[in-house]
Computed example of a mutant assay.
Amino acid sequence: MAQLEASKVVLKNPSYDAYFDKVQNRKKLPMSLQQTLTDAFASIPVSAFPEVPRGKAANTLGEDFYKVILEEEPFASTTVRSIVTSYRWAPFIPVASDSSMLSVLLLLSKYRLRNVPVIESGKASIKNFITQSAVVKGLEHCQGRDWFDCIASQLITEVGLPFMSTDEVICVQSSELVLEAFKLMKENQIGGLPVVEGPERNIVGSLSIREIKFLLLNRELFSNFRNLTVKDFMNTIASEAPDGGEIMIPITCSLSSTLGDVIHILSSKMVHRVYVVAASGKEVAGVITLRDVISCFIFEPPNYFENYLASSRQEVNS
Rank of each mutant, 00 (worst) to 15 (best):
S125W: 10
P91S: 09
I93S: 00
A90E: 08
D149V: 13
K110F: 06
S97E: 14
S121F: 10
L139F: 15
G122N: 08
I151S: 07
G122K: 07
R114P: 00
A90W: 12
F148H: 06
L106A: 04
C142I: 11
S109M: 05
W89N: 09
A134R: 03
P91M: 08
L113K: 13
W89G: 07
R112D: 11
P94M: 10
Q143W: 11
P94T: 09
H141L: 14
E140F: 07
I151H: 07
S100C: 09
W147L: 11
L139T: 05
I119H: 03
Q132G: 08
A134P: 00
S97H: 01
Y111N: 02
C142Q: 14
V118Y: 06
I119Q: 04
N115S: 03
L113E: 02
K110G: 00
K127T: 14
W147A: 14
P91V: 07
G144V: 13
D149T: 14
D149H: 10
A96D: 08
E120L: 10
S125E: 14
T131L: 03
S133D: 05
P117H: 07
L105S: 01
L108D: 00
I119T: 13
G138M: 05
A124P: 04
S103L: 05
P94W: 13
L105F: 15
Q143Y: 12
S100H: 07
N128G: 04
T131S: 15
A124T: 14
R112K: 10
W89T: 11
P94Q: 08
S86P: 00
Q132I: 03
I151A: 08
L106V: 13
E140A: 06
R145E: 10
R114T: 14
C142S: 13
K137W: 02
V118K: 01
P117I: 14
D98Y: 08
S97Y: 02
V135L: 10
S121E: 11
Q143S: 13
L139A: 08
K110T: 07
S103N: 02
F92Y: 15
Q143M: 09
L102E: 06
F92T: 10
V95M: 05
S121Q: 09
Y87H: 06
V136D: 01
K127C: 09
L107A: 06
F148M: 11
I83K: 02
V84W: 09
C150K: 14
L108G: 00
G122L: 08
K137I: 06
L105E: 01
P94L: 08
A96I: 08
I93R: 01
G122W: 08
S103G: 02
Y87A: 13
L113R: 14
I151Q: 04
S82T: 12
V104H: 01
D146N: 10
H141D: 06
R112F: 13
P94S: 12
D149M: 11
S121L: 13
F148E: 00
A90Y: 12
S82C: 01
S121A: 11
V135Y: 03
L105K: 01
F92P: 01
R112C: 04
R112L: 06
S86D: 06
C142G: 04
T85P: 00
S125P: 00
F92H: 07
P94D: 06
C150R: 14
D98H: 11
